[in-house]
């Protein structure tokens, strides 16, 4: 039943890790750089976009989500969806409170 060499199957090479590492460093640099320029509303959006991209890289490659089972990918998607529900629906309440009673 057990494959003797199953451990050898999903080894990510250090090159990939290094590439992600460099990309993350570049992302940090870019975030800091961007925050010192006035982009108006896009300052936080850009910062968050970079963070999300960085997190995506880490999750996909360093954490091997790319090679994980479908169940794992699905669960991550499900949790992110519920997280968006939490953010979105709480924010909806606070945002629409400013509209007044009706």
């Amino acid at each position: 039943m057990s494959e003797p060499n199953h451990n050898e199957r999903h080894i990510t090479s250090p090159t990939v890790y290094f590439a992600v590492y460099v990309a993350l460093l570049a992302g940090v640099g870019l975030t800091i750089l961007a925050s010192y320029h006035n982009l108006g509303i896009f300052n936080p959006i850009l910062a968050l976009a970079i963070s999300i991209a960085q997190a995506g890289l880490v999750v996909l490659f360093t954490m091997h989500l790319k090679d994980s089972s479908k169940a794992t990918v699905l669960s991550v998607g499900c949790a992110l969806f519920i997280l968006m529900i939490l953010f979105g629906m709480v924010f909806m309440d606070y945002y629409s409170r400013a509209w007044g009673s009706w």
Partner: peptide, 11 residues
């Protein structure tokens, strides 16, 4: 990676 920009880099 989320805390850093959200806390340190406002405006």
């Amino acid at each position: 990676l989320f805390l850093f920009p959200l806390l340190y880099l406002i405006n």
